[in-house]
């Protein structure tokens, strides 16, 4: 069977890496990369289509190439990168709706893999120690990327109901770290002095960028219906992570945490929105038994190993991604 994979969001780091990884896979015949802007440097072995997934062009592209697998990595995590919150929301939510509408119209589509985030669980004091995929969030996210992701997942579920013949795999990733990837959290850990919330020590879980790509790749090759948490094993507390990274930190009372953080991060790369503050106050743990038992993916890095990869990395000049 010829396999044609369409990847969205290829102009950002993880999407681009994913596209070239799939292009190198002998089981995949063709990779079509889609994004609003061209990638910073051309990705070898893929056909790039500059298309805004917010408009219906995407359906035409998919139909002509008879795409059978769609990898949706086009949900943007940082406002800064999208150029404002309203653009970000439009790309994330309207873009996903258009993409799903195109998938629905394309009979050749057999599987859909969506990169989502564990931040859909929200975070707060009433959370269980580890979230399983079927748990309802106690403190549902109310803003930003996390809320977009909740909506994206809802549309993906709706698509799954309308096209029961398509295998839909939703992957909820822990915070991605690694030597090259740049997110608002890696920017946070690269601040000269890292602010923490006084009196709280959140539990953090991480997934290494290789494992993120590996899990998506695994799901493309072996699609499994369902939603899966993907994270390295174990947790690090924030204070422990900072000690491992040999970082100086300052504990700030929670009302002042946001303002102090924004002062320390003048470029605004680190995120101090209410959702991020909640995460850095309470943290979150993930149950990954379904990832192993059903999806069949085994991560190479534990949370601690993934995080230590960040310490050894320099400061890459690449764009912020997530």
């Amino acid at each position: 069977m010829t396999r044609t994979v369409l990847v969205t969001g290829v102009s950002r780091y993880l999407g681009g890496q994913m596209a070239s990884r799939l292009a190198a896979d002998p089981d995949v015949d063709a990779v079509i990369g889609v994004d609003v802007v061209a990638p910073p440097e051309p990705i070898e072995g893929i056909e790039f289509v500059r298309a805004d997934i917010r408009n219906p062009i995407i359906a035409k592209v998919m139909g002509e190439a008879s795409v059978d697998t769609v990898v949706h990595m086009g949900v943007i995590a940082t406002q800064k990168q999208a150029g404002g919150r309203s653009t970000m929301k439009e790309i994330n939510v309207i873009g996903t709706m258009q993409l799903l509408a195109a998938c629905q119209r394309t009979p050749s589509v057999r599987s859909l893999v969506v990169k989502s985030t564990a931040s859909v669980y929200g975070c707060g004091p009433k959370d269980p120690a580890r979230f399983t995929e079927d748990m309802e969030p106690w403190h549902a996210p109310s803003s930003g990327w996390a809320k977009d992701s909740v909506e994206v997942e809802a549309y993906v579920r709706g698509f799954g109901r309308r096209r029961p013949d398509v295998t839909v795999t939703t992957l909820r990733f822990a915070n991605v770290v690694g030597p090259r990837v740049q997110t608002s959290l890696t920017a946070y850990f690269r601040l000269p002095v890292v602010p923490t919330v006084l009196g709280y020590d959140p539990r953090l879980t991480f997934v290494h960028e290789e494992d993120l790509l590996g899990a998506v790749h695994h799901a493309v090759g072996r699609p499994r219906q369902g939603t899966f948490n993907v994270s390295g094993d174990g947790v690090l507390t924030l204070s422990q992570a900072l000690r491992r990274a040999r970082k100086a930190w300052v504990a700030v009372p929670s009302p002042l945490f946001g303002p102090v953080g924004r002062t320390l991060s003048p470029a605004g790369l680190a995120d101090f929105s209410s959702e991020a503050v909640r995460y850095l106050t309470y943290g979150r743990g993930l149950d990954t038994s379904a990832m192993r038992a059903v999806l069949g993916y085994e991560p190479q890095f534990t949370s601690a190993e993934a995080f230590d990869g960040l310490r050894h990395a320099g400061r890459p000049a690449g764009v912020v991604d997530a």
């Binding site: 959370d127 006084l198 009196g199 929670s254």
Partner: peptide, 24 residues
């Protein structure tokens, strides 16, 4: 959950091995 929403107390409780009273 009052324990875990209180600064310092919640942190110390988690480090001492305690967790929120919930079924999971």
């Amino acid at each position: 959950n009052l324990v875990f929403s209180t600064p310092f107390l919640g942190e110390a409780a988690r480090k001492a091995g305690h967790t929120l009273a919930c079924h999971p």
